[in-house]
Amino acid sequence: MARYLRYMVPLAIFALLVAFLYRGLSLDPKLVPSPLVGKPIPKFTLTRLDNPAASISDADFRGKVTLLNVWATWCVSCRQEHETLVQLAKTGQVDIYGLNYKDNREDARQWLTRYGNPYVANAFDSDGRVGIDWGVYGAPETFIIDREGIIRHKHIGPLTIEIINDEILPLVAKLKS
């Protein structure tokens, strides 16, 4: 019997490989998980998108459960997720802040006027420097932040209704209680 077992080794190795490959089909190899989950949000101060004289900083994120959405007008997927964000904002379940990433102020303002503004406030990060502190490597990305200003979750890629219902809202509800 041991003799026969030896010849089954290649098949066994292949079976293991197939298991990994099958799992791999549902994974996205380009996703980079964030080491900032569980850590406080980075300190920053930026001008507001709608008003260059006013500023927005990390302090504004204390005291309530919030979402930070990284977006830009040059980002095609951001346009796709925008409707979903607007709907989420309408439910009033969570405050959505925006980080306008490496964009043009005028273009961004017009974009919001045209497509709707789900954001409580928008920070204008023209050179992406603050984005680096948040570990941003593309747009759109969405962070869930709790009352103490700790990052609890990062979602990479555009938001859909399913993701909102399955991933975002349950966590938001949990953090609120």
């Binding site: 026969y4 010849y7 089954m8 290649p10 098949l11 292949f14 079976a15 197939v18 099958y22 089909l25």
Partner: peptide
């Protein structure tokens, strides 16, 4: 393709075993 791989490679390795 994965299913195809299973049939071809899995089948051939089973035959080998």
């Amino acid at each position: 393709i994965l299913i195809f791989l299973c049939i071809v490679i899995g089948g051939s390795l089973s035959l080998y075993a």
